[in-house]
C-alpha cells in the first residue's frame, strides 16, 4: 500500500513542479475562466461582477470595427497561410535539388524569422512608403506614373501585411518542409525513378503525402502566428488606414487599454478562443481515436 502511494505521489516531484501547477491551473484554467466570466459582465475599466448576460456579445457583433477585424483575420489568415505554404514548399523543393550554396540560401530565407515582427513591420512600412520606398525609387528612375502605395489605401493595406507575413514566415515553412523532404527514404526516390515516374509526379503523388507531419507542423505554426498577429499590425499600419487592418488581437488590446471596456474586450477574447478550442478538441479526438485503434490492433 505504502509503496504504491509513494509512487503515485512523490512529494519532491510535486514541489518541483509547483510553478507548472500554478501556471497550468492558475493561468490557463482560472485565468481563462475569469476572462470568460467577465465577458458576461458590464466591466468597464475594472472588473465587476454585474452580470448582463450576452449583452457584451451582442454589442461586439454590432461593432463594425470588430466585424472588420474578423473579416481581416480570415482574409489575412487564408492568404498568408496559403501563400506561405506554396512559397515555402517551392523553396524547399528547389533547395532539395543539390544546389550550390545551399547553406547561404537557407540563411537568407530564414533570417527574417529571427527578427521581431516589429522590425518586419517597420521594414515593410518603409519599403512601401510612397515618399521613400519603391514608388519613390521607381519615379526617380524616370517612371513618373509608377504608383505603388498599398499602405495608404484601405483596400490594399491588408495585402501589404500579407507580403510582410510571407517575408517573415515562409523561410520557416521552407526549413520545416525541407527537413520533411530530407526525411523521406532515399530508396523511395530510386524506386520511383526505376518505375519511370517523372520528378514532379513523384513529388505530388508520393513524397508530398509522406510529408503529412511536416505540413501539419508548418500549418499549426502559422495558424498560431495568425491568431496572435499583433506586433506586425501595430508596427506596420497601426490598424489603419482608419480601421482597415484592424485584427481581433489588436481589437482586444485596444478595448482593455485605450477604450477601457473590459467586458466587451473579454467577449472578443472569448470569441478568439472559440475556434482554437474547436480545433484542439477536434485534433484531440482524432489523436485519441487513432491511439485507441492502434491499441486495439496490438
Amino acid at each position: 500500500m505504502q509503496r504504491s502511494w509513494r509512487r503515485r505521489f512523490h512529494l519532491p516531484a510535486v514541489i518541483g513542479t509547483i510553478p507548472m501547477i500554478l501556471v497550468a491551473v492558475g493561468v490557463f484554467v482560472i485565468g481563462i475562466g475569469f476572462s470568460v466570466l467577465w465577458s458576461f459582465t458590464s466591466s468597464k475599466l475594472f472588473p465587476t461582477y454585474d452580470f448582463v448576460g450576452l449583452a457584451q456579445y451582442r454589442r461586439l457583433w454590432a461593432d463594425s470595427r470588430w466585424l472588420v477585424s474578423v473579416n481581416n483575420i480570415w482574409f489575412f489568415g487564408l492568404m498568408s497561410i496559403s501563400c506561405n505554404m506554396v512559397f515555402g514548399y517551392l523553396l524547399a523543393v528547389f533547395m532539395d535539388q543539390r544546389i550550390r550554396q545551399e547553406d547561404l540560401f537557407r540563411s537568407i530565407f530564414l533570417y527574417p524569422f529571427a527578427m521581431s515582427l516589429i522590425v518586419t513591420g517597420l521594414v515593410w512600412q518603409w519599403v512601401l512608403d510612397p515618399n521613400l520606398g519603391l514608388q519613390a525609387a521607381m519615379r526617380n528612375l524616370g517612371w513618373s506614373s509608377f504608383s505603388f502605395a498599398p499602405l495608404v489605401d484601405a483596400n490594399t493595406a491588408i495585402y501589404a501585411l500579407v507580403v510582410a507575413g510571407i517575408w517573415q514566415g515562409s523561410g520557416v515553412t521552407m526549413a520545416i518542409l525541407l527537413a520533411g523532404l530530407r526525411g523521406v527514404d532515399e530508396e523511395i526516390w530510386k524506386a520511383a525513378r526505376v518505375d519511370g515516374i517523372p520528378t514532379w509526379r513523384t513529388h505530388l503523388s508520393i513524397v508530398a503525402p509522406m510529408m503529412k507531419g511536416a505540413f501539419a507542423t508548418a500549418f499549426v505554426l502559422q495558424c498560431v502566428g495568425v491568431v496572435r498577429v499583433y506586433d506586425l499590425v501595430i508596427a506596420m499600419t497601426g490598424g489603419g488606414p482608419g480601421i482597415a487592418t484592424s485584427m481581433p488581437a489588436v481589437y482586444v488590446i485596444q478595448l482593455i487599454t485605450v477604450r477601457q471596456n473590459v467586458g466587451q474586450g473579454m467577449a472578443a477574447a472569448t470569441m478568439m478562443l472559440l475556434p482554437v478550442l474547436v480545433v484542439l478538441a477536434f485534433s484531440g479526438l482524432v489523436l485519441w481515436r487513432r491511439n485507441r485503434r492502434q491499441e486495439a490492433r496490438v
Binding site: I188, K190, A191, A192, V194, D195, G196, P198, S205, I206
Partner: peptide, 25 residues
C-alpha cells in the same frame, strides 16, 4: 526492375496501386 532493402513501397497507395502506378504513368 529493382527491389530495395527498405521495400520503398509508396505508403499511401494500396498494394494494387503500388504495382500499377509506374505502368499507368
Amino acid at each position: 526492375g529493382m527491389v530495395f532493402q527498405s521495400y520503398a513501397l509508396y505508403p499511401q497507395m494500396t498494394v494494387e496501386k503500388n504495382l500499377s502506378f509506374g505502368l499507368r504513368v
